[in-house]
Design a protein around this nucleic acid. Structure first.
Length: 500
DNA sequence: CTAGGGTTAAGC
DNA sequence: GCTTAACCCTAG
C-alpha cells in the first residue's frame, strides 16, 4: 500500500473513537511516508491530547504535545497560536506544578514542588519566552508564573493554589482547545473524498449513467487525477489533472485549516495533497522532543516499563547504540516487535520506525487508556523529568555481550517477578572484545555520539544562564534535549567548546 | 558532583 | 603519526 494512502487511512482512524491501543497498533503496522506529513503529525498530537483528556492524565507529555502543535502550526505559517491553545498551555503548566502540592508525602517538605517550579517555570517557560514559540506565552501564563514564583516563598499562596481545582481547569482548557482544533482541521481527507465521490456518483446517475461499481471506481480515479494524486503517479498531463477545479477545494480547505496564506511558501504547510516537509531544523527539534517523552510501546506489552528499565541498565542494549545493529537498539526499536530481529541492513527501517515511535500517542503499558489515574506517580516522574536510566549509561555490574541470533534461552526462572513480567527472548550470549577490568567484569565504552547542533546550542545557552560547573542542574533543566548526555559529558563538551 | 588528567577512535 | 572529540576514571 502506498504510504500516502496509509497516511490518509491513519488520519481517518485517529479521528474515530477507536481505542488508543488499536490506533497505536495501526500506527506501527502501516507504512508511512517519510517524513511524516505535518497534517498527520498534528492529528497524532491532537489524538494524544484527547487520550490524556480521556484517562484523564495531564503531564509533561501534555505540555509537550501543546508545544509541538504550536511549532507545527508556526511551521505551517500561522502567525500566532490561538487563544485556546495558549490558555490550555498555561492551565496544563499550572496543573503540572500544582499536582506536587496535592501529592506531598509526610517526608516531602515541598522539594518536589520547588523543583517543578524551577523546571517548568524558570527553565521551560523562560526558554519559551526567548524562543520562536513565544506566542504561547500569554498574559495568563505570565500571571501564573508570578504566582508560582510567589508560591515558592509564600506558604499562603501555596495553600491558595492547593485549594483550587487546577486539574479540572486544565482539563477544561484542553477540551476547549481540542474542540476548536477539531473544527479547524475539518473532516479527514478520506471522509471528504468519499463525500465527493458520492456526490459525483449521484450526479452521474442522474445524467443517465449506470451507477455501477466500475463506474464508481472510474469516478474515484478521475477525482484523484483532478487532485493530482493519480495524475502524478500515472503521469497524466497537467491539463487532465486540472480540467475542473471543483475538487481542488480540498486543498484550499487544507490551507485554511492552519490559516496558511495560499501564496505562502509550501514548506511546512499541511496540505493533504502535498504533505510537505517541515524544515529540517524544526523536524530535528520535534524528533528529539517527542522521542524522549512519547509512549512508544505497543499497548499489548504489559509490564514493559520494567523490562525497559532492565534493558536500559544492561550494556547489551547499548553496545550498538546508534548503529542500528542491536535487536533492541533503543526504546523505539522495542516499540516495534518486528524490528527486533533486524540487522544492519535494516537501519533505514529502524530510523523510519524511530520517527513513527516518536509519534505514538499511547502511554507505556496503557492498553485500554485506563481512566482514573490522575497526575500520579507516573506523572510525577514525567513532570519532574526524573532521569530514567539512560540506554547509554554503563552498568558496572553487568557484563557486556553480543547477541547470538542462532540460539535462544528460555526466560530466567529465578526472577522474582518471573510470572508477572513479559519475558523477552534471551539469546545465547557471546563476549565481544573488551578491555578487561578484572577477572569477572568487562567494560565497554559507550558508542561515540557526535553532539548535535541543538545539543551544543542548548549547552551554550544554559552555561550563559546558569554558569560553568552546574552540569547536573543544566541537565535537569533540559532533560529532553540532553537525555543522552551525562553531567560529565556536559562538562567535557564545554571544555571542548571553549578550547576552540 | 565536579574538575582534570587519561584513553579511545575517527579523520586527516 | 598527529589532532580532535567523545568518553572514562578518580581524587577531593
Amino acid at each position: 500500500m502506498h504510504p500516502r494512502v496509509t497516511s490518509w487511512i491513519l488520519e481517518f482512524v485517529l479521528r474515530q473513537p477507536v481505542d488508543d491501543w488499536v490506533a497505536n497498533g495501526l500506527l506501527f503496522a502501516l507504512p508511512l511516508p517519510s517524513p511524516v506529513p505535518p497534517r498527520l503529525k498534528k492529528t497524532l498530537l491532537l489524538r494524544r491530547l484527547s487520550s490524556d483528556l480521556s484517562r484523564p492524565c495531564l503531564s509533561g507529555r501534555t505540555l509537550l504535545s501543546l508545544e509541538l502543535i504550536e511549532e507545527l502550526d508556526r511551521s505551517a505559517g500561522a502567525d500566532a497560536p490561538s487563544d485556546s491553545l495558549a490558555a490550555a498551555y498555561a492551565a496544563v503548566a499550572v496543573e503540572c506544578t500544582a499536582c506536587f502540592l496535592r501529592e506531598r508525602s509526610d517526608d516531602d517538605h515541598g522539594e518536589d514542588f520547588f523543583d517543578a517550579v524551577n523546571r517548568i517555570w524558570n527553565c521551560r517557560v523562560a526558554d519559551l519566552e526567548r524562543s520562536e514559540a513565544a506566542g504561547l506565552v500569554s498574559p495568563a501564563l505570565g500571571e501564573a508564573r508570578r504566582e508560582m514564583e510567589e508560591a515558592v516563598v509564600n506558604p499562603i499562596v501555596r495553600v491558595g493554589l492547593m485549594g483550587r481545582d487546577t486539574k479540572k481547569a486544565a482539563l477544561d482548557a484542553v477540551r476547549v482547545y481540542l474542540d476548536e482544533a477539531d473544527k479547524e482541521m475539518g473532516p479527514p481527507y478520506l471522509e471528504r473524498m468519499a463525500k465527493a465521490v458520492g456526490e459525483e456518483w449521484r450526479r452521474s446517475s442522474r445524467t443517465g449513467r449506470d451507477g455501477s461499481v466500475v463506474e464508481l471506481y472510474e469516478i474515484l480515479l478521475n477525482l484523484l487525477a483532478i487532485q493530482g494524486e493519480h495524475g502524478r503517479r500515472e503521469g497524466l498531463p497537467d491539463g487532465d489533472r486540472a480540467k475542473t477545479s471543483r475538487f481542488l477545494e480540498f486543498d484550499k480547505h487544507e490551507e485554511s485549516v492552519l490559516g496558511r496564506d495560499k501564496d505562502a511558501p509550501e514548506q511546512g504547510g499541511c496540505s493533504s495533497d502535498e504533505f510537505v516537509h517541515l524544515p529540517a531544523a524544526a523536524a530535528e527539534v520535534i524528533k528529539m522532543k517527542i522521542l524522549s517523552r512519547s509512549g512508544v510501546l505497543p499497548a499489548n506489552l504489559d509490564n514493559m516499563e520494567d523490562n525497559q528499565d532492565q534493558m536500559g541498565s544492561n550494556p547489551v542494549f547499548s553496545v550498538n547504540e546508534g548503529t542500528g545493529k542491536g535487536p533492541y537498539n533503543d526504546h523505539d526499536a522495542m516499540a516495534h516487535p518486528s524490528l527486533m530481529n533486524q540487522g544492519p541492513s535494516d537501519l533505514e527501517h529502524v530510523e523510519e520506525n524511530r520517527e513513527r515511535a516518536s509519534l505514538s500517542f499511547v502511554d507505556k503499558g496503557t492498553k485500554d487508556g485506563n481512566p482514573g489515574t490522575s497526575t500520579s506517580t507516573r506523572d510525577k516522574k514525567d513532570c519532574a523529568g526524573a532521569p530514567k536510566p539512560s540506554l547509554v549509561d554503563r552498568n558496572r555490574t553487568a557484563r557486556t555481550f553480543e547477541w547470538d541470533e542462532d540460539s535462544i534461552e528460555s526466560p530466567s526462572e529465578n526472577s522474582p517477578n518471573s510470572s508477572n513480567k513479559l519475558h523477552f527472548r534471551s539469546p545465547k550470549r557471546r563476549e565481544i572484545s573488551l578491555p578487561l577490568e578484572d577477572n569477572k567484569t568487562f567494560i565497554k565504552r559507550r558508542t561515540k555520539r557526535k553532539w548535535s547542533s541543538l545539543e551544543e546550542e542548548t549547552l551554550k545557552k544554559a552555561v550563559e544562564r546558569h554558569g560553568v560547573g552546574n552540569w547536573k542542574f543544566i541537565k535537569s533543566c533540559h532533560p529532553e534535549i540532553l537525555k543522552d548526555r551525562t553531567e560529565v559529558d556536559l562538562k567535557d563538551k564545554w571544555r571542548n567548546m571553549i578550547r576552540q
